[in-house]
Structures are given as C-alpha cells and as structure tokens.
C-alpha cells in the first residue's frame, strides 16, 4: 500500500493528466447540449441574456463584415433584377413578334442581332442567320415595330444588314391615310425625311408612313414610322416631312428576315435605266 502511495505521489502529474484526459474524452463522448439537459440550457440562457444586455454596443469589425456581405447581396439582387427586367422585355417583344406572320405572306426567318452600330453615318447590324438558314442579299428585314433594313451581305451563318438609319438607304414609301408617295431617307440621329412630296398634297402630323407598292426591294405595307412634322420647304415646291422611325434601333435585338427577294428582271431593268438617266432616285 505504501509503495502504491509512493508511486502515486511520484507520478501524480502524469496520473492526473491521464485522469483528466479520460474525463475530457468521456465528456466529449456524451456530447451535446441536449444530453446535459436543463443545467446547460440555464447557463446558455443566462449568457444569452448578458449578451442581449450588451448587444447595443456596436462592433465595428462585425458591422464592416455585414456591410460587405450586404453590398455583395445587393449587387447580386441588382443583377437578378436586371436579368428579370431583360427577360420581361424580351418576353413582350417575342409575344408581339408572334403576331408578325399575319402581317406578311412571306416566310420569316427569325434572327438575333449580334452586333450593330447606330451612331455612325453608315449604320449596319450583324445577325446570327446566314445562307445556311436561307438568308440572301437584298432580302428585307423587319421586326414587330416595322422596317429595320435590308440584307447587304451574307456568309454561311451570319448576315450584315444595312439599317434604315443609314445615309445610303432610300425607301419608296407612302402615307397610309392619303396614299401620297415619296422617298424616305435618313438625315442623321433619329430623323427620317419623306422627300418628293409636293406642297399641295395632304400629309399631317401623326400620319403613318408605310413601304410603297412601287418598291422593288422592300415588301409593301411595312411600317416605317410616323410623321412628326410636316412643313413647307422654303424656296421649293415640296414639303419637308419629318418622320419618327417606328423601330427603336438602339434597342434592336430580335429581327425577322423576310424570305422574299425582289424580282431580278425588274431590278436589272431599273438599274439599266438608272445608268442611262443619272440623278433618278430608284424606288
């Protein structure tokens, strides 16, 4: 017995360490909050009460972290809101486009605008449909709002459009209400002008301008725009008619290529006449 006591005294630190380690491991094996029941719940409740008493003291580090987290969340929500708005707009556009086939007898080839310029003298757009999809040069392009332009070049899977807002574009047009004819041209920014309309003819603000039946390149009765201003031009016999394009070119995203080419015989004839009579504006 004495030997045992001497042993314990001699190795008391090591024995204590082993006992405490065993006790700790035993506690760990019993585990969690619920195993210890009400006692620990009371302590946790008391600590929680003390924490709530001092909760009014701001913690700058935690506030900074929370602020950063909220900023990130805000950014994510802003992106989601923008996506949602974009989806709604796309939805509305596509819904109105569904009505398009009724507006024309020709087959329509749906395409997305994948590139465009709208701020230069000669504005073009690139679409994601090409020869493989049936798109050919000289086909006109429309969307739910009206005339967009004409195809001037096509590769296997892409095509380039010359937009209505291009200084080289001229469209034979008519006033829907009075059937008065003229030539629509772009005059920069968002201004189209209906030219060659004599002073005596009836054109009013608000009149709708459509593509003419005389046009060799564009299908008839496609909306071009609405008359914003109709004045008499100084020192001429014609009127100055300013037209707001119906298509919003700055937000152009989806278009339809009208699967109809102008009659080549007619085009060839008109080109021949053009060469013979310089200054004639082809419809």
């Amino acid at each position: 017995m004495r030997g045992f006591i001497e042993f314990v005294v001699r190795f008391k630190n090591a024995i204590t360490l082993i006992v405490l380690v065993v006790m700790s491991l035993s506690f760990m094996s019993i585990g969690n909050l619920s195993d210890l029941g009400g006692f620990r719940a009371v302590i946790v409740g008391s600590i929680g009460w003390i924490q709530s008493v001092f909760a009014w003291i701001p913690n700058p580090v935690a506030l900074k972290a929370e602020n950063t987290a909220l900023r990130e969340l805000n950014l994510q929500l802003a992106v989601e809101a923008a996506r949602s708005r974009q989806a709604m707009l796309e939805n509305a556009t596509l819904r109105s486009m569904l009505k398009l086939p009724a507006m024309t007898d020709h087959r329509l080839i749906a395409a997305d605008v994948i590139g465009k310029t709208t701020t230069q003298q000669r504005n073009y757009a690139t679409i994601n449909m090409g020869r493989a999809d049936g798109v050919r040069e000289d086909m006109s392009v429309i969307n739910d709002a009206g005339l967009v332009g004409i195809v001037i070049g096509a590769s296997e899977h892409f095509a380039v459009l010359q937009l209505l807002i291009n200084r080289d574009t001229r469209v034979s047009a008519k006033v829907q209400r009075t059937r008065v004819d003229g030539i629509v041209q772009w005059e920069g920014e968002n201004i189209l002008v209906l030219k060659n309309v004599p002073r005596t003819l009836d054109v009013r603000v608000g009149d709708r301008i459509l593509t003419s039946n005389y046009s060799a390149r564009y299908p008839a009765n496609i909306v071009i725009g609405t008359v914003r201003m109709a004045d008499d031009e100084a020192n001429t016999l014609f009127r100055r008619i300013v037209v707001d394009p119906s298509v919003n070119f700055s937000t152009l995203e989806q278009v339809f290529v009208v699967d109809a080419k102008p009659n080549p015989e007619r085009l060839a004839l008109e080109r021949r006449i053009d060469e013979r009579t310089p200054g004639r504006i082809a419809p």
């Binding site: 204590t16 360490l17 405490l20 380690v21 700790s24 760990m28 019993i30 585990g31 620990r40």
Partner: peptide, 25 residues
Amino acid sequence: GMIAGFLCGLLFDVVSTDVIGTNAL
C-alpha cells in the same frame, strides 16, 4: 495548472455551447 486548465476549459465549454470536453482537454 492541469486541474485549472481542465476546469477553465470545462467552464468555457459550458458557457460557449461548445462540445463539452474539447476545451477541457
């Protein structure tokens, strides 16, 4: 020191809702 460490750890485990015994050990 060992006993103080064990008791301090146990106390901390109880008040901090940690697994009882980890801080004690």
